[in-house]
Design a protein around this nucleic acid. Sequence first.
DNA 1: CGACACTTTGACTGTAGTCAATGTAAGTGG
DNA 2: CCACTTACATTGACTACAGTCAAAGTGTCG
Lengths: 260, 260
Amino acid sequence: MCGRQVVTLATIHEIKPKSSQPNRCATCAVRHRAVCGALSETELAHVNGISRRTRLPAGSIIFHAQEEASFFANIVSGVVKLSKSLVDGRQQIVGLQFSPDFLGRAYGGENPYFAEAVTEVELCQFPKNKFEKLLFEFPMLEQTLFERTLNELDSAREWMLLLGRKTAVEKVATFLLLLARRAGDQGCVPDADSGAIRIVLPITRADIADYLGLTIETVSRQITRLKSREIIQMINNRTIAIPDLTALEAISNQSGSDTY
Amino acid sequence: MCGRQVVTLATIHEIKPKSSQPNRCATCAVRHRAVCGALSETELAHVNGISRRTRLPAGSIIFHAQEEASFFANIVSGVVKLSKSLVDGRQQIVGLQFSPDFLGRAYGGENPYFAEAVTEVELCQFPKNKFEKLLFEFPMLEQTLFERTLNELDSAREWMLLLGRKTAVEKVATFLLLLARRAGDQGCVPDADSGAIRIVLPITRADIADYLGLTIETVSRQITRLKSREIIQMINNRTIAIPDLTALEAISNQSGSDTY
DNA sequence: CGACACTTTGACTGTAGTCAATGTAAGTGG
DNA sequence: CCACTTACATTGACTACAGTCAAAGTGTCG
């Protein structure tokens, strides 16, 4: 669809030849936040030996359903969407991955979904077989990956609640809040003067719609509505200011503690 | 809601005192299908030592959100639903667990959802700290649990596609198909004469609605519609015959292979 | 039998989807 | 520099699918 550029990994050049990067990990932007954070300096040397940095333009297909994955990767920068679709083309985004998330499914089996770079993406890739050997050698690595998978499962279930039970406004508000929280995690603080948080939408309206189980038009209308209620301000198409997070939270209807 | 019986684990008696069960695992119905399948006979002896069989009536609360889980468990028999809800009471079932599924979240952290026995349930429980020690000692156990978690994540994402993008009929058809496939896995074969598969709905219409992101009425209407289209036959409220699985599959709109 | 929980059916409503037109912004080439 | 293209986004009018509210039906248990 929509004539986007298709770039497979095979066509991507390494940023630098391996031999000239004796200890790339040491200066890695996601050294401590990625799964590698579980490793000691000496263990990291092994990882460094098998890793390869690649840069993919927006729109690149990283892997697709039914494909036996041949590699694993850390997202160093950029945004990756994971999606599934029905035969008639209806699509659902089942995960939005940012740095320092991990891509790939351990222990064989196919990735039953489709992964695509939404922005330009920088990956730190590992060949499948070598990485699985590391998992075996360094139990902490496996455990870290396991914990991340548990967190992803929790997020997926939280999203099931959104998809199955939230209204359109609630969905959009939850999505904006997700981005605002992520911005907060990365050290972005509210503007000193206005107290407003500023977020940048990493994906198009079409992708937001596919993430929230809505149509483009409904997403657009709900954003307009939030704007006219002065819950948000549009700086431009992709940039939004949120003057009062709690107001947005009230609308988003966060999953409550169970009433038991 | 609906005045169901509330029974916490503390109130449940063990089926037999521990000392009189020298090797309960040897005769366990789910010995090979549960996570224990990853263990050797000698390893299993350790597991046997810390496990405890409990039986919970339908409606029992197994654990709830924000509770630090104090145990793990295999489901030996029965059906458990995992659900999340919004403050105003809207509910979404995020997982239906059957035997020999595993309950509980490794590596600490709270279970961010609510687990309830839908039918009478028989559990094989392990105290949290002792079980985590086993995970450390027997890497195969951890790996098996990891693989199961990956499968659960895949199922959750498949369900996200259903919740976000399928129509009411498609949702109901997919649910029936899920049960039919499960029945098949358990050795139930189509009726010799008619070729029909017979399934028993393990949950009420209300729970089906909460699983599919619909209302009770819509579920009921779609079942009626499938009945009048002769895709299914109602034996009684809870028992359904499916004369032709492929017809149901066509309606369910299985997630297609990606078009790439 | 009556009580209660669950299910089905009917009439009506409303939210989000569809179809179509217009608006906006960035990029291309004459 | 300005028309033109292209992709993306917004807005409007209308529709339809699923939700709501209400009543009646079914089945089970004491």
